[in-house]
Nucleic acid binder design. Structure first.
Lengths: 142, 142
DNA sequence: ATAAATTGAATTGTTTACAATTTAAAGTGA
DNA sequence: TCACTTTAAATTGTAAACAATTCAATTTAT
């Protein structure tokens, strides 16, 4: 009896890691890891987010984000600034190189394109909906 | 534009982590983390595996497994032994407590049962097949 | 107004994950 | 036989992930 039959969470665990691995090489062009790339996507969509706002989007806490953001700051992609209005808050703003990197990023093809290329449109939609249902359910549980 | 629309890998990344989190509490009864639990599942299915065989099943390398297995050994759940026939190999065998833990494990309900409880049987099957296709494709790529 | 509770980030400590390298053993070929 | 390669695991170094705690700033309730 294979493990994926015994343990329904296993496929998610493996696929998630395979995806991170698939992104490794293309993201080297940007000098980013996959989680760092996700943070940059958040900021490219909306600059100046608080740490907690990024955390909400990505389901990550400050324990993960603080060191990650410090690394992005060291790479000169973002600036971390205490909010003047509320000194508890730390606002993350893109630097010029951070903003500029979006062009390179847009030029990258997602490694997942190849994975889904032979899927019918309907299958993709169904699958996306099911994944969303799983995520919703898991987030509503705790 | 939400991140899951821009980045097709994101749902896998989040769901995988949410699943690990969902397992945290129930697995505390066993004193195991989710990856440790997966390793134990492999061994309960077939005892005496080599490190590399566990790695094949779980898509993990020795860099991850060696310290994890050392922790399981410290917990007295497994024994690590150099193979006599081939001294490069390390064989992982369950201890008596390690074998005994399977009973407790079998008694646990998967936290994912609740996630899928309101799914129709057909949906589950379709979803499983699509996940398997994704995994196969990702593994055939590199 | 001020003690108590809440919030936002940072910190601490442990575990995973993985690339890259190392070490030792076993297999191969000339 | 003896260099050459391959294999199996361990090691090294870096980054993520997360629970638990801490710390400071802000809210709130009295």
């Amino acid at each position: 009896m294979a493990i994926e039959e015994k343990e329904p969470g296993f496929p998610f665990y493996v696929v998630s890691r395979l995806i991170s691995q698939a992104y490794r090489e293309p993201l080297q062009t940007l000098g980013l890891t996959y989680p760092q790339y996700l943070v940059m996507l958040c900021l490219w969509e909306k600059d100046g987010l608080m740490v907690s706002q990024i955390g909400e989007k990505l389901c990550l806490d400050s324990g993960t984000l603080t060191p990650l953001l410090k690394r992005l700051e060291t790479m000169n992609l973002v600036k971390r600034e205490r909010s003047e209005a509320d000194e508890r808050r730390v606002t993350i703003e893109l630097t010029y190189p951070g903003r500029a990197l979006q062009n390179k990023a847009n030029a990258l093809a997602s490694p997942l394109d190849a994975v889904f290329e032979d899927w019918e449109e309907k299958e993709r939609v169904v699958f996306q909906e099911l994944m969303a249902r799983i995520q919703d359910k898991l987030q509503s549980q705790p």
